[in-house]
Simulated assay, not measured.
Amino acid sequence: MGGIRWATFDCFGTLVDWRHGIANGIDLLFPGQGGTLLEVYNGHEAEVQTESPGMRYRGVLAEALRRTARDAGLDLRADDAHVLGDTIAYWPVFPEVAASLTELRAAGWRIALLTNCDQDIIGETQRRLGAPVDTVVTAEMVGSYKPNHNHFTRFEEAFGATRDRWVHVAQSYFHDMEPAKALDVPRVWINRQADGRDPSIADAVLPDLHGLTATVEAVNGRARS
Score class of each variant (00 low, 15 high):
residue 143 G to S: 11
residue 49 Q to M: 15
residue 162 T to R: 14
residue 10 D to C: 06
residue 96 E to C: 08
residue 83 V to P: 01
residue 33 Q to L: 05
residue 139 A to V: 02
residue 217 E to S: 15
residue 191 N to F: 08
residue 7 A to R: 05
residue 10 D to T: 09
residue 145 Y to K: 10
residue 208 D to V: 03
residue 65 L to M: 10
residue 60 V to W: 02
residue 137 V to T: 13
residue 39 E to C: 03
residue 120 D to L: 07
residue 24 N to Q: 14
residue 222 R to V: 12
residue 51 E to N: 10
residue 44 H to M: 05
residue 43 G to C: 11
residue 33 Q to T: 09
residue 71 D to R: 15
residue 60 V to I: 12
residue 169 V to K: 03
residue 217 E to G: 03
residue 91 W to E: 00
residue 152 F to H: 01
residue 153 T to N: 06
residue 74 L to C: 09
residue 40 V to F: 02
residue 65 L to T: 00
residue 172 S to V: 08
residue 20 H to P: 00
residue 136 V to Y: 07
residue 68 T to H: 08
residue 21 G to I: 07
residue 21 G to R: 06
residue 220 N to A: 05
residue 66 R to E: 15
residue 116 N to F: 00
residue 192 R to W: 03
residue 161 A to M: 03
residue 81 A to T: 10
residue 176 D to W: 06
residue 87 T to E: 04
residue 41 Y to P: 01
residue 217 E to H: 09
residue 25 G to Y: 04
residue 31 P to C: 11
residue 83 V to I: 15
residue 33 Q to N: 11
residue 158 A to T: 13
residue 53 P to Q: 12
residue 213 T to W: 04
residue 122 I to V: 15
residue 95 P to I: 10
residue 174 F to S: 12
residue 195 D to I: 01
residue 112 A to I: 04
residue 216 V to R: 02
residue 161 A to H: 02
residue 148 N to C: 07
residue 158 A to P: 01
residue 73 G to L: 08
residue 22 I to H: 08
residue 3 G to V: 04
residue 172 S to N: 14
residue 92 P to L: 14
residue 66 R to D: 13
residue 212 L to T: 08
residue 160 G to D: 09
residue 123 G to T: 15
residue 188 V to C: 06
residue 165 R to V: 01
residue 61 L to C: 15
residue 25 G to I: 05
residue 50 T to I: 01
residue 105 R to H: 03
residue 111 I to S: 00
residue 4 I to M: 10
residue 5 R to T: 12
